[in-house]
Amino acid sequence: MRSNVTALAATLAALALPSLSAAQTFELFGSDGAASRHESPQNFAMELRFSPWQPMVDSEFSGSGGGPFLQYFGERDGNGVRTAVRDRLLGALELDWQALRINPIGSLGLGVSVGFSSFTANAPLTATPSRDSGQESALVMVPMSAVAVLRLDVLARRTVIPLVFYGKAGVAASYWWITSGENLARRSAASPSAPTNNAGDFGQAAAGLSYAWQFAAGAMLRLDWLEPRAQRAWDLEMGVNHSYLFAEYMIVRDWERPQLRFGSNTWAFGVAFEF
C-alpha cells in the first residue's frame, strides 16, 4: 500500500510538471531585494549530475564470501577470487521548481530526477561457475527521485562569497532490469533452484521497481563572478540567472521490503543552472 501511495504521489507530481512551467515562485517575508532589476524571474534549477555508483544489492544477504552482486560483478584478484565491485558511473538529470522564496535566506522547492547506470559481466557457465562464458549479463538501473530541496543562497546573494548550501530529502525509486545476452533474463525450470518461491517467476522478464528514502547535502559554487558580463548576457538571451559547479553527498536508504536493493552512499558532482 505504501508503495502505491508513493507511486501515485510521484505520478501526480510528474503530471503536474507541465502546469509548473507557468508557475511562479511564491515569496515569503517580502520581496527579494537582492535581485537585480535587470535579472529575469528565477523559478527553476536544473542539475546535470554524475556519481560513482554501487548499489548495496548484497545488503539483502548475510554470510561470508559476499552476496551474488559481488560474486557476479566483482573484480577478480590474482587467485581468481572476486574481491570488490568497481563503482560505475551514474548520470542523472534533476529539475527543481523553486516554489517558495524565503527571503532573504534561500528557497524551498520540489525536485524530480532520473538517472541511468549499469553493471555488466560475462555470465559464468552453469556447469563450471569458475569459468566465464562469452555471453554478457547486465543489471541496468534507472533511479528516479522526488525530493524537497532547501537552498540557502543568502551568502551568494548578499555577500561576495559565491557559495550556496543546500539539503534534499524525499523518496527514490529505481526501475531495474537484468539482461542475459541480448534479451531480458527469465528463469525457467532449467535455472538453478531458488530457495524461496522457486517457480513463482518462471517465464517472467527480470525487471522490477525498488524504493528508498533519499537524503543529500551539498554546496554549490556560483560561477557568475568568473564572467559577470557573460552571465548577464546569458540571462538576457536564455533566461539563465546563475550557473554553478556543485558537490553533494547522497544517502539512499532502501525500504525494508522484498526488493532488489539499490541504495548507496555516494558523492555526486556536476553543473547546475537556475532559470
Partner: peptide, 18 residues
C-alpha cells in the same frame, strides 16, 4: 547453459520478484 545475474540472485535467496 550459463547463469545470468537474475538466476544467480534468485539462487542466492534474493527476494525481489519481477
Amino acid at each position: 547453459p550459463v547463469t545470468d545475474f537474475w538466476e544467480r540472485y534468485r539462487e542466492s535467496g534474493g527476494a525481489a520478484q519481477p
